[in-house]
Design a protein around this nucleic acid. Structure first.
Ligand SMILES: Cc1cn([C@H]2C[C@H](O)[C@@H](COP(=O)(O)OP(=O)(O)OP(=O)(O)O)O2)c(=O)[nH]c1=O
Ligand SMILES: [Mg+2]
Length: 786
DNA sequence: GGGAGTCATCTCA
DNA sequence: TTCCATGAGATGACTCCC
């Protein structure tokens, strides 16, 4: 094999230049691949880029050699052992197969190019690419006939197709059309996953059932809907899981669809001859590796070589490969995905001019800071990325004690990083921020330590990390669950809790009521069952749209009944005591009988002891938490299953070595806390008090949108037996509520259930929803296992 | 030995 | 004339430290 390879190398050197373009792509079937490869090679040969690719290639060759050697060293006994382990694992994985869901993957055809053609119809029928001379983002199908495609440098594309028209990228346009497509997706799955600007995953199980349609009919209708809404064509794939659906959407591209039935035999047949490169997550290198080390080219062969794969790859990779061989993929709908990082980078003529490089850094720092502020993010890990004139990529990172977001702070640390590298000649500089505030997903180093994130993610009573797997009879349970715990603690006799979480200093979002839409949400889950006077009162008021503004005021006027936890005051004092509880005209607090004696333990404490009182009430809250936890023995209770976003296999295989960051300790007076964290504390305290009526007025404005989603989800869980009135600007805050009132310029412009409002595409609410969807789109997990 | 931090690689649109 | 992008996520190896 090595021989034939090297003889080919000498006669046709371009064949050894492995580019990403060798991968089959829709619309390139009739292309003379040999010719394209030769031209790409001719154009690249000798360049700095090419030399770097050669270095990388050599490195991979080395890796392949190493793996081969390791393979050869395995004894027969070892091989048989690994085979046994793999066979067992295959059975386990097979047991997780879920054929009950129907997933549809939509992918727009030549998205950027199609959008450009819409806005300039004269491009129709002509070979065209979006991008510039140095790189093109995509090409239309006419251009693909010449071998021109995404990720190809423009000057090579022009060589392949001299009449190729170049159109510069215009993200605004793509975003606009992306929104339109998502509006259509939404009709079929309100929780669809936007995988990128031009694609989405939809769980159409319910649509098929409710409307008595086949998945093929749904796909047809959806594609027609997208076309009518946008004038753009798309392709769809339907399959029992996302991994397969993604493969299917590519089969009859462009403007086509492919249905893989929810049938094990059909799946196995489909997968058997499928080239592994078609699977998302297997790219150029993995394909190369698996082919040259194990001779694997099709999915089926993954199973045949399962033993050896298990021996040479990490458990998580081996699992993934087995899943590919079995045609298994994720079927669950992840609840929330938090942004992990934010970055920007720029390429320029390679230079060692320090003033120039510093200037670039300034620009990047400012852009990054601005972007972060848009999402109210603060990060503590800053990574500087550099690409040398020879295309070598280097990164340098610092993790700080404090969370930062200002351009000054970013620049300060970025320039330190850069200085340490000087002198250096670069062609690219980039900055990335990660480890966001409120982004901790970790198990605390002290497992009994309560954390805000845990509280929000896992619930008041459980205090469990969502990744924790409570296993019952076997490890093979398909879902993760956490145990739903009941509490019979008495509910406080105060009925309403009004919380104003707004920060007057934060003028970003809410400062100008005249210019902003406002959503007042009314959740009446338990309304019919509650017949207390306060309830009826609130109902009457909220049901009168004209009075909305006034209604809120009235609540404040009635505040003798309310506990007000006022963040504003907290912020000014930097410490965490809810001094507003007693100082801001609220004369009652649930815990203090006669404003003097603790309801629970009888301890006496005058109202002027603000911080002491807060400490005391926190103590009782903690007590309550602990009691609920110890009362709950997961094995003795009937657990209520809850779907958790983390998939079973991944977390199971990684359970032991998962490295999670443990949350930072609270500094004196909470000085190291962000505004968002302060809001969370308020929220946590309020939820723990278990009111029947809750008014949340911009309760999470200081928290980033993604975290907000988790919080909202948790609030919903914790307030299922309680009436919640929310005032908010963010969509996830209110999307699941029973009633939405949209306020604009102080007037109620709409008033209905979210579903009803969404039916009308031009409703103000629909527009807000689309805007949110657009802003919150993010990447997907390519190793998505079931 | 495990957690946090750093860095390089791979993959995707 | 131009001469291989940008933004994001996952994973694994390695180091330092308690
Ligand atoms: C592949 C790729 C896509 N993109 C952008 C441009 C694409 O229009 C958009 C979607 O990517 P794709 O869906 O991969 O490509 P496409 O929609 O242009 O063509 P088709 O699906 O019909 O094969 O993402 C990049 O910016 N860089 C890339 O390397
Ligand atoms: Mg596409």
């Amino acid at each position: 094999m090595a021989e034939s390879e090297s003889s080919e190398v000498t006669s046709r050197p371009w064949q050894s230049y492995h580019t990403v373009y060798t991968n089959a792509k829709a619309g390139m079937e009739g292309v003379d691949k040999e010719k394209v490869q030769r031209i790409v090679y001719e154009m690249s040969k000798g360049s700095k880029y090419f030399e770097n690719e050669e270095r990388k290639e050599a490195f991979i060759k080395q890796k392949i050699e190493n793996m081969r050697a390791r393979c050869a060293k395995l004894t027969a006994a070892e091989i048989s052992h690994y085979q046994k382990v793999a066979d067992k694992r295959i059975l386990e994985l097979e047991a997780t197969r879920d054929l009950t869901r129907i997933w549809l993957h939509v992918d727009m055809d030549a998205f950027y190019a199609a959008v450009e053609t819409l806005s300039n119809p004269s491009l129709k029928g002509k070979p065209m690419a979006v991008g510039g001379m140095s790189m093109i983002s995509t090409a239309n199908y006419e251009a693909r006939k010449f071998g021109v495609r995404a990720a190809m440098p423009g000057f090579i594309a022009r060589k392949l197709c001299p009449q190729l028209i170049f159109v510069p990228t215009d993200f605004k346009k793509y975003t606009y059309y992306s929104d339109l497509t998502r509006k259509v997706f939404q009709k079929y799955d309100a929780n669809f996953m936007a995988a990128s600007l031009d694609e989405g995953y939809l769980d159409i199980t319910n649509v098929c059932k409710e409307r008595g349609m086949t998945s093929g009919e749904v796909a047809e209708e959806l594609r027609k809907g997208v076309y009518e809404e946008t004038g753009l064509t798309c392709s769809a794939g339907v399959a029992p899981n996302r991994l397969l659906a993604k493969v299917c959407s590519d089969i009859n591209k462009p403007n086509g669809q492919f249905i893989l039935p929810n049938d094990r035999m059909a799946v196995m047949t489909f997968i058997s001859s499928l080239p592994i490169r078609k699977i998302g997550g297997i790219g150029k290198v993995t394909e190369h590796l698996l082919r040259d080390v194990f001779g694997i080219t099709t999915c089926e062969e993954m199973l045949q070589k399962s033993g050896i794969l298990g021996a040479l790859f990490s458990p998580s990779s081996a699992d993934f490969f087995l899943c590919v061989g079995l045609g298994l993929g994720s079927t669950n709908t992840p609840q929330v995905r938090l942004r992990k990082s934010m970055s920007n980078e720029r390429t320029f003529l390679a230079t060692g001019d320090e003033a120039f490089l510093y200037h670039k850094l300034v620009d990047l720092a400012e852009m990054l800071s601005a972007d972060m502020k848009k999402e109210a993010l603060c990060g503590r890990t800053l990574t500087l990325k550099m690409k040398t004139a020879s295309f070598e990529i280097r990164t340098r990172a610092v993790t700080l004690q404090k969370y930062i977001c200002s351009s000054e702070d970013i620049l300060k640390h970025a320039s330190k990083l850069l200085k340490a590298e000087l002198p250096i000649s670069l062609r690219l500089i980039g900055l990335r921020m990660s480890q966001f505030n409120e982004d901790k997903d970790g198990t605390p180093s002290d497992p009994t330590q309560k954390t805000l994130s845990n509280f929000i993610v896992s619930g008041v009573a459980t205090g469990r990390n969502m990744d924790d797997h409570i296993s019952f009879d076997s490890d093979l349970s398909d879902d993760h669950f956490i145990t739903e715990l009941k509490t019979d603690l008495p509910i406080d006799n105060h009925e309403i809790c009004y919380n104003d979480f707004r920060d007057p200093l934060d003028s970003n979002e809410v400062s100008d009521p005249n210019n902003s839409n406002c959503l007042l949400i009314y959740n009446n889950d338990e309304m019919e069952k509650n017949d207390g006077s306060l309830n009826s009162k609130s109902k009457a008021k909220v049901n009168t749209p004209e009075m909305i503004g006034h209604t809120l005021k009235s609540y404040e006027a009635e505040a003798s009944q309310l506990v007000k936890i006022d963040l504003d005051t907290m912020n000014k004092r930097t410490n965490l005591s809810d001094d507003a509880v007693s100082s801001s005209n609220q004369n009652k607090q649930s815990l203090w009988v006669d404003d003097y004696k603790c309801l629970l333990c009888g301890i006496e404490m005058p109202s002027s002891f603000v911080e002491e009182r807060q400490e005391h009430s926190d103590f009782h809250l903690a007590e309550r938490l602990q009691k609920e936890e110890s009362d709950s023995n997961p094995r003795s209770l009937t657990p209520k299953k809850r779907f958790i976003q983390k998939d079973h296999i991944t977390s199971q295989s990684k359970r032991k070595k998962k490295h999670k960051s443990s949350p930072a300790d609270v500094a004196e007076d909470g000085e190291n806390w962000s505004m968002g964290q302060r809001q969370l504390v308020c929220l946590a305290r309020v939820l723990l008090q278990r009111r029947k009526i809750l008014v949340l007025d911009e309760a999470t404005t200081l928290v980033d949108t993604t975290t907000d989603n988790v919080i909202q989800w948790r609030i919903r869980e914790e307030t299922s037996r309680c009436t919640v009135i929310r005032v908010a600007h963010r969509i996830p805050t209110i999307i699941d509520n029973d009633l939405v009132l949209v306020l604009d310029e102080g007037k109620v412009v709409e008033y209905d259930s979210p579903t009803e409002l969404l039916k009308n595409n031009s409703s103000a609410f629909s527009k807000l929803v689309m805007e949110f969807k657009r802003r919150s789109s993010s990447g997907n997990n390519h190793w998505g296992l079931p």
